[in-house]
């Protein structure tokens, strides 16, 4: 059992205006947990803090009660805009292999075609790019996935395809998933339990 814990997280872009105030949060890797918040409620900021994208916050992010070591971060972020976390001058094969080299079987499960490996990010559709960014995050060393509005920009059909592959994989390899969204209907459908960011955030 792996646990992800956030203790007394506070963060503000300036001192007057705190986005997050003393947040405490725990989840383990058997869970598909939902985190609901409206736009502007600070959920993206919270996701970035959990995954090390922002490091100037107060409080602690702990994995199994230890702080995160340098090197590969077992808590990986998947982002709303996959093109922003890909170097535009790299081809898709290099982008995926920056993390790991999945087997043909896994590529198939995620609906990724080998022929896309030679293309550049600007040559794939949003759904195709998001498949790559998800699979890249699912490195064998990954214990938790923080999925920040990952299907908001996609159509409903692609949304189902993406969640289906991600959640099946996560269950199989015991990866905990935090599903962050403003879409309560989606959260009810795919998560075991949903918490509200506003309840955690002591404003």
């Amino acid at each position: 059992m792996e646990t992800l814990k956030a203790e007394h997280i506070s963060f503000g872009y300036n001192s007057k205006n705190m986005v997050l105030n003393d947040i405490n949060f725990t989840m383990d890797n058997s869970m598909i947990l939902g985190l609901f918040g409206d736009s502007g409620s600070g959920k993206s900021t919270f996701c970035k803090i959990l995954t090390g994208f922002i490091d100037s916050y107060k409080g602690n992010v702990l994995l199994n009660n230890k702080s995160i070591e340098n090197g590969f971060n077992p808590i990986q972020l998947i982002y709303q805009h996959p093109e922003k976390i890909m170097n535009p001058r790299w081809n898709m094969g290099d982008i995926l292999k920056e993390s790991w080299n999945p087997s043909e079987k896994i590529l198939n499960e995620f609906g990724i075609k080998r022929e896309w490996f030679n293309r550049y990010p600007s040559e794939l559709s949003g759904g195709e790019l998001q498949r790559f960014s998800i699979l890249r995050a699912l490195n064998p060393k990954t214990k938790f996935i923080i999925a920040d509005e990952i299907t908001t920009m996609l159509d409903a059909v692609t949304q189902v395809q993406i969640w289906d592959s991600l959640l099946k994989y996560a269950k199989k390899y015991n990866i905990g998933v935090l599903v962050v969204s403003h879409d309560d209907k989606l959260l009810n459908k795919i998560t075991d339990r949903t918490i509200l960011l506003d309840d955690l955030n002591k404003q």
Binding site: T51, G52, F53, N70, G71, F72, N73, Q76, L77, Y79, K84, I85, M86, N87, R89, E98, S99, N139
Partner: peptide, 24 residues
Amino acid sequence: EFIKLSEQLGKSKWWIIKKHIFPL
């Protein structure tokens, strides 16, 4: 964001300079 992600994938500073920043 892709540099931040590279850091979280455990890549060293030197690797990021060589592979990401320099070619750009």
